[in-house]
Computed example of a mutant assay.
Amino acid sequence: MKAFPVWSVANRMKRPLPERPAHICVLRLSALGDVCNLVPTVRALQRQWPEARLTWIVGKGEHSLLSGLSGVEFVVYDKASGLTGMREIWRQLADTHFDVLLHMQQALRASVLSLGLKAKVRVGYDKARAKDWQHRFTHRQLDPHPRAHVLESFMDFARLLGVDPAYTDHLEWNLPVPEAAMAEAARLSGDAPYVLMSPCANPRLRNFRNWSPEGYATVTEHLWAQHGLKTLLTGGGSAQEREMGERIRALAPDEAVIDAIGASSLKGLLALIARARLVIAPDSGPVHMANALRTPTVGLYATTNPDRAAPYLWREYVVNRYPDAVRAYLHKDPETITWGERVRHPDAMSLIRAEDVIAQAEALLALPRTATSEPTNEA
């Protein structure tokens, strides 16, 4: 098989978009928060063309979160497998011809993977939003959408294809949470009401998104004293996350904390979020998982722009110190910087105050408790 069948023509042909695609390919490998933000676009496509096949090429960890999503055929790529893994996917899909490929990952790895897929038309981001020369790997680009939220950027793909605004404006997730995950969550959380706190973001180079254990402990103590709400700590099993959990526990009342760091699966985490009264976390997967389940969410933002990446349904409840961080550590006016520019400074999150987090938590706890969305038990 020819590995790179479209490179020479991809960016030179403005091919027509299909009116009724029979088979749609979504290419988005990572990350957990991003794939949660993409699901409403998948649902809009499904409502517009319920008879169409939809194949989603996704990362290994992300698939463990999304598995069982109704109407979606997953093809899983483990980024650790590199080019070998790509060749396996090309072999797996060698006889598959997509009517349209939605190239929704702004990374060179994904663009290389896309070259071995057969599609009549490839759609990618406009030049302003594309990264790693992504527009050179596609036939059609999105219309410009300056200052778009990540979720809206994904939905722009559906809009370009002509999906009815009734479907693009009404956001739907219906993430599957199997019974085994609900049982796992019940075992970890017990019967007491709780707030879920995921204190650490994914550790990456110069990715300073974590707030202080002192701040988390202050919020934990307030929620326990004022509302009788325990704080359930979640996260992976890394040394950094375990250390953060231990420091929070040392500073907060013993009876107020349930330590589930490193103890849940991703589906189990979804179930824990579904059962929580409230979620508090920095810019990370759990705030977007909570958003997808419509669980009230306080996002903590100073190093990333919440206008671009906040939990979408709960944007007004974000603790937003991003403009202050831009002024203090980039020495720039927030209105003049590149959209989505990060503040890569280890002290930026210290601009968030415990009283700000408590105020937003109180505002959310005061809202009527309505079952606006329930997780499904698909898969």
Rank of each mutant, 00 (worst) to 15 (best):
T295E: 09
H170F: 14
R344N: 14
A119N: 07
G71C: 10
V318P: 00
V163E: 09
H288I: 02
T138M: 06
E221W: 12
I280R: 07
P282D: 05
H23V: 05
L196W: 09
A80R: 15
G190R: 00
M13G: 00
D169V: 08
L269D: 02
P146A: 01
G237L: 00
S64N: 11
A225F: 02
T96C: 13
V42Q: 03
G85C: 03
S189R: 08
A10G: 07
L196V: 14
E19Y: 01
V42H: 11
F4R: 10
L300W: 07
V279K: 03
Y317D: 06
L101T: 09
D324Q: 13
R136Q: 04
S111H: 12
G68A: 09
W133Y: 15
A80Q: 13
V75T: 13
V177D: 00
F98H: 05
G190S: 08
S284F: 06
G235A: 11
N174F: 01
I57Y: 13
A148Q: 03
T84E: 12
S70I: 01
R129D: 12
L161N: 04
W49H: 00
P368T: 06
N11Y: 06
A302P: 03
V100D: 07
M104I: 13
L161F: 04
L233Q: 07
Q360P: 00
L266Y: 00
R209V: 00
Q134V: 09
W56F: 04
A328R: 12
L196N: 09
D143K: 12
A348I: 11
A158D: 09
S373L: 15
H345Q: 04
L38E: 12
L160V: 12
V35H: 01
G59E: 08
I57F: 10
V257H: 03
N210D: 15
F157C: 13
A325W: 04
I261M: 11
N320G: 09
E316W: 03
G85P: 03
R206N: 14
S212G: 02
P306L: 04
P21H: 15
P193Q: 01
V26K: 12
A325M: 01
M86R: 10
L278A: 03
A52E: 09
R159C: 06
E341R: 14
A148T: 13
H103D: 13
A309C: 08
I273C: 04
T55A: 08
K131H: 11
A107F: 10
L364W: 11
K127H: 08
S238N: 07
A379K: 01
L102H: 02
T376M: 03
T376Q: 04
W56T: 06
M13T: 14
G61S: 02
P311H: 13
T234L: 01
L367M: 15
L32E: 00
